[in-house]
Design a protein around this nucleic acid. Structure first.
Lengths: 255, 255
DNA sequence: ATGAAAGTCGAACGAACGTTCGATTAAGGT
DNA sequence: ACCTTAATCGAACGTTCGTTCGACTTTCAT
């Protein structure tokens, strides 16, 4: 029950990688299980030994990617105190992951709404924590630099817009690497929110309850009842207790 | 052949509006022609009297929106000379259109790749002209302000990222209107590219031939041979010569 | 060697899809 | 009144989809 589980996980991971590539180039809904079967070399029916449904493949890809993104950001931010350098690091890690995993990047950003109900909520819970981690960095910057009028929500979402939109245009043959991209985008963003171009600039009083920053506590997802699919004859309920499929619980946000 | 054509066009426009709403909430590929039929009150078969295919509906929605966007930007920019004010205006019009037409906005940005071949190319031709219009504004700003190291391509695409990403988060009940959004985003962008935060900042030598700005000439699409669907028994080849379906040719870019 | 478990697959099922067909009704010019 | 054309629709066709089933092969601890 040790080697077998490891083998299962290795192959599942490979399937997820290939599925991400297929989802990227065809889009989740247009891609068929037959496409994925062909890309992986596994038969159509064989796919269902590793995942109970097509939805679940997307779910695993998204959760896996988001958790990696979140974990790397947390680990790195733990070692830095300067607010500016923290934000720069967050941006760098985000861009680095995106440019190194273009398939997962697109699946994460373009197929946001392709999941439903439980699975969607679970991914959104991780995303929200990740968002708030960034939010806290910008908020800290706002305090440190006395940026009284800054609408943090809008600033953060604009930053994510710059970064996430990349999947629509980035061309590794033409565009700079992630380090240079980080310089560019942190440059725009930091200059952008601290400067005071024209009237009003980056301000707006309505910082309201827009985004419910419920304190820096970690927004971990609570225990789920099954996977909402009634545990099929195959061995996996959420993925058979493998590392990939365990929800994974980590240290609270450090900021 | 006058009143009848006008009636046809009115109903087609209504169908396009409803279809855009359906595409927005369900996504293009998940939305069925039956969904659109139900939303418009027209029968499933009746839909095919107004559009030869589902693809063509998406095509018309996208082309219509892009042409309106492009026309309004051109008209407004004609009256302004200050580079900063020109860029500000471009951003304001873009955001205004997006916030006033959220259905078309999402269909434009999220369903970029849902079209194929001819139809896709035709929409992309308009989009490219629109992109270059913005590119020229930023390039003019670069000259006017001596922003030697600025990678215009990356700056422009970052700006579009900020603006286009809005469809994933904008909530009219919580977020400011288009005027305030314009202030915020032009603030970030103008401060962003003119400032000099940290080392390197918004610079990179590789401004190369990345995007082929083929002079300010308009990139109009040339005459197409039919609509690639062999003119079905119904009256429409590309939409029956109505205002909506005519490619539309306009004045060259003013900058 | 043997038997249970893990892994794999061809073939099929039922549902949903975009599109078409033939027919019917409504409008509008003469 | 008549006839052409516009406008509309129910019913179906052929295809593709996600998923399932039952049987087959491989793996490996005993």
């Amino acid at each position: 029950m040790n080697r077998k589980s490891a083998k299962f996980d290795r192959k599942l991971e490979e399937i997820l990688r290939e599925a991400a590539a297929v989802f990227r180039s065809l889009g989740y809904h247009q891609a068929s299980m037959r496409d994925i079967a062909h890309a992986t070399g596994v038969s159509l029916a064989g796919l269902y030994y590793y995942s109970p449904s097509k939805k679940h493949l997307l779910y695993l890809i998204q959760r896996h990617a988001f958790e990696e993104l979140l974990a790397s950001a947390r680990a790195a931010l733990d070692l830095i105190v300067d607010p500016v350098e923290r934000l720069r690091t967050f941006v760098r890690l985000h861009l680095q992951f995106f440019l190194e995993h273009p398939n997962e990047m697109k699946v994460l950003t373009h197929e946001e709404e392709s999941l439903e109900d439980d699975l969607r909520r679970e991914v959104n819970a991780i995303k929200k924590v990740y968002y708030q981690l960034c939010y806290h960095q910008v908020e800290a910057l706002k305090q440190a630099r006395n940026l009284a009028g800054l609408n943090t929500r809008l600033a953060v979402l604009s930053l994510f817009g710059m970064m996430n939109w990349i999947y629509t245009w980035y061309n590794p043959k033409v565009d700079p690497d992630s380090v240079a991209m980080t310089q560019l985008m942190t440059g725009i963003f930091l200059n952008g929110i601290t400067g005071a171009w024209g009237r009003g600039a980056v301000e707006r009083a309505t910082a309201g309850p827009a985004v419910r920053v419920s304190g820096p506590g970690n927004g971990e997802q609570r225990s789920r009842r099954g996977n909402g699919a009634g545990t099929p004859a195959n061995g996996h309920s959420v993925g058979r207790g493998s590392p990939l499929s365990r929800p994974g619980r980590r240290a609270p946000i450090t900021s």
